[in-house]
Simulated scan of single mutants.
Amino acid sequence: MSSYRKTLEKGAKAYRCGDMPLDAFLIVSGSVEISIRRDGVQIPVVTLSSGEMFGEMELIDGGMRRLTASAMTDCVLQIIKREQIVERLDNTDPIVRALLQRQLSRFRVALELIESDVIADTGHTDPSASVVTSAIAKLRLEAQLREALEQGVLEILWQPIGAIADGRIVGYEALMRWPHVDLGDLMPKQFIALAEETSLIVVLGDYALQRVCIALRALADCGCSPMPYIALNVSGRALSSAVFVDQIIASAVRHGIDTAWIRLEVTESVFLDYHQIEELIQRCHAVNIRVAVDDFGTEYSNFSHLHRLAFDTIKLEQNFTHDLDQPRCLAMVQAIIAVARAIDADIVAEGVETDAQLQQLRQLGCDYAQGFLIGKPLTSTELLASIS
């Protein structure tokens, strides 16, 4: 059983009055009764069922449990760790924290009134049901993501990047996929933003880095020559870490691979601190790691990025590729390729799906292409099979 799951048989207690609160719980299946002790008798307060959360208020409050939670049926509970909630509170707006403290005060008063058999209006107004539902769904997904990381079920797929001139596969981009039991295969955009709200993104990044190094070691052991690179997407949280590049170096040494086989991709949306990114690029170049600006052409695009930061590669956002049949788009791509040439950077066109797009990019002088025409994302087994 995962450390993020708990099973209770009918009649068992999730916690008792007087316990120190360590976790909150989401009910995956079954029902739970919350009760309070008064005059030596347990008085039911509420019965909760699948999808509902309990134990969070006392967890935030930090005091001893004043309520008892009992399984009314056999139950499966998703555990919400204390640090998940505390980290979110620490990072939230001060006004929100103040409002929460006010609600906690009312929570304490309400418990005291129930214990003393007095009914009173505490002035509490329930938040919107949709807000509560959304918050619970987010906490549930975060707990499930932590569980998936713990069990190693997140998959890394490898999408080929080909040289347009001769069709050679020169590298791969590491793409994370989460095979969720209930929701099916989740792509990064469906859970990366959630991880970025907390330090979970650091754990997720290290998970991806280790699997990239394992894959590169396997490719080297297969005698792959010339050796392809693998590109790894970098989060804003990783960029702010002073030891990020040191962690890459240490992982490369541990797996016996060349750091030049690893490439980093940085999206323009994290360009908040030029000095920070400039320092990252310099440190990467010192150990032969090339750095790409990803999704160039999105809402954050700015040619000053290319002027001020020594990127090795520009990855052209896929909408440019899809609209190459439009004269204005064609002219813009031609200009971007000319700029790349002038600053000695490579160009990778993303989202290449047709022969016509590939031919047009070849005529424009684009270096590399990525997309379903070049190759679909491969599992690790398929990757090694394609090499051998």
Rank of each mutant, 00 (worst) to 15 (best):
R341M: 01
G51C: 06
Q370I: 04
K376V: 03
A340R: 08
I85C: 05
G40Q: 11
T379F: 12
D182A: 09
D74N: 12
A143P: 00
R308V: 02
G162D: 02
A98T: 10
A252Y: 02
R102I: 07
Q190F: 00
I156V: 13
L154H: 06
Q101F: 09
L232F: 01
E147D: 15
V270L: 01
L324M: 07
S225P: 02
N233R: 06
L59H: 14
E147Y: 03
E147W: 05
D246L: 01
Q370E: 06
L232Y: 00
Q318S: 12
H285Y: 13
D74T: 11
S2R: 13
I27Q: 13
I34W: 08
K10V: 02
E87H: 11
C366T: 12
P21I: 11
I387S: 02
I248V: 13
A260G: 01
E265C: 00
M57V: 07
A24M: 10
T122E: 09
Q42H: 07
L186S: 08
E115T: 13
D295N: 06
R211W: 07
L157Q: 11
I85W: 07
R5T: 08
Q151W: 03
H124P: 03
S116P: 00
Q334K: 15
A250L: 01
Q318M: 08
V153R: 14
H307E: 10
Q151T: 15
T267V: 05
A238M: 07
A260T: 06
P226N: 07
D355A: 15
E147H: 11
A349H: 10
I343M: 04
A195S: 12
I343H: 08
I387H: 09
V291Y: 10
F320Y: 13
Q210W: 02
G256I: 01
S2P: 15
N233W: 02
L383E: 02
Y368A: 08
S31P: 07
V291T: 03
V181K: 14
L113Y: 14
W261P: 00
V287H: 12
P94G: 05
A286L: 13
V181Q: 10
S31Y: 02
V333Q: 13
D39Y: 04
I262M: 10
L306F: 14
S31E: 09
M176V: 10
W261V: 00
P160L: 01
